[in-house]
Amino acid sequence: MLLIPCPWCGPRPENEFRHGGEAHVVRPVDPRCVSDAEWADFLYNRTNPKGIHAERWRHIHGCGRFFNCIRDTVTDRIVTTSK
């Protein structure tokens, strides 16, 4: 069970958290103005890197806040988290 440092609550056991997918996936400001391909890219395409991955977690069974997290997908080590 990972120990995840919540920026608000400090290190907490993984089961208090819910993964929120890749971070910095920006929802188009006006979805009406994007093409089908661009919209599909927003919906479905993710970087899925081997190594450093910026992702979102939510401390759902704690303070309830979403936060950003840098995790190494090779070692499963969390490098840092931020509000």
């Binding site: 188009p28 006006d30 979805p31 009406r32 994007v34 089908d36 919209w39 919906l43």
Partner: peptide, 13 residues
């Protein structure tokens, strides 16, 4: 309504 969650997808072919 200009937008709501999922609206854009409803016009995909």
């Amino acid at each position: 309504k200009p937008d709501f969650v999922g609206k854009r997808s409803l016009s995909r072919s």
